[in-house]
């Protein structure tokens, strides 16, 4: 059986519906383990003190902020090429989740920056890129909500997602270029495996897994909601048509 058979809205709902609560509980459990482990059972790093523990929120949310956009990009491409409605709705459903992840990454970055850099906000290339990503999410979501016709909205937001991806990537490198060398010493590349000791890395992996599960659960849940909204819309339209044509 082809994977595309799940592109049928009803089949998608029937299949994913029962998963959602399980995924929610699983992500809650994994996150609880990862965060408790990370917060209370890891040593304090010599350079950072206890402030380092915010990476257990900061790094996974930053990871999901980017992955959510990638997922939207893939879903948009599938919509443009194969016209599966579920794909477009999944992209729509993922956007607010990705935006919140970006926001979490920004806020935790600022909170971490306060003891590290002595300031809430530094125009560090990485933080700046996430700020720009946040703006891209805003524009994407605003475009979805501004267009009344759902198919037209799906088409236009998909085009925006494609073009936006290219520009977001360019912005990433432009920002690096723009602020090279200013925060070289302070650029905290803790999320690279080679820089992190295993005692920090393993609970971090658990937290990342928890965030991935949370993201999948939320996107499935929200996609289901979007599908039901479209179904209500379709049923209403059919009822209206039946009224206008005398039997």
């Amino acid at each position: 059986m082809s994977i595309w058979s799940y592109a049928n809205p009803r089949k998608f709902l029937d299949t994913t519906g029962p998963w959602v609560p399980w995924l929610m509980w699983l992500s809650a459990a994994v996150l609880a383990v990862g965060l408790v482990w990370g917060f209370f059972f890891t040593p304090e790093a010599e350079r950072f003190g206890s402030s380092v523990k915010i990476i257990y929120l900061h790094v996974p949310s930053a990871l999901m902020a980017i992955n959510a956009w990638l997922m939207m990009l893939v879903a948009s491409l599938i919509w443009l090429i194969r016209r599966h409605h579920v794909s477009a709705l999944a992209a729509r459903a993922a956007a607010p989740v990705g935006m919140v992840m970006t926001l979490i990454a920004l806020v935790t970055g600022a909170i971490w920056g306060q003891p590290m850099w002595g300031t809430w906000w530094a125009w560090d290339p990485r933080l700046t890129s996430f700020l720009i990503l946040f703006l891209f999410y805003l524009g994407y979501i605003a475009l979805w909500t501004a267009i009344p016709d759902p198919d037209q909205a799906a088409d236009l937001t998909s085009v925006l997602c494609l073009v936006g991806s290219v520009f977001a990537l360019m912005s990433r490198y432009a920002v690096n270029f723009w602020n090279q060398g200013l925060h070289q010493g302070a650029s905290l590349s803790l999320d690279k495996q080679e820089n992190v000791a295993d005692v920090f890395w393993v609970p971090l992996l658990v937290c990342m897994a928890g965030f991935v599960l949370l993201f999948v659960a939320l996107v499935l849940l929200r996609t289901g909601t979007e599908i039901r909204l479209r179904r209500i819309r379709a049923l209403r339209a059919r009822a209206r048509r039946a009224e206008t044509v005398p039997a």
Binding site: G139, F167, M170, S171, Y173
Partner: peptide
């Protein structure tokens, strides 16, 4: 929509 797209050009 346009202002974030302007970022690389501006930089």
């Amino acid at each position: 929509i346009v202002l974030p797209l302007y970022v690389p050009v501006l930089i």
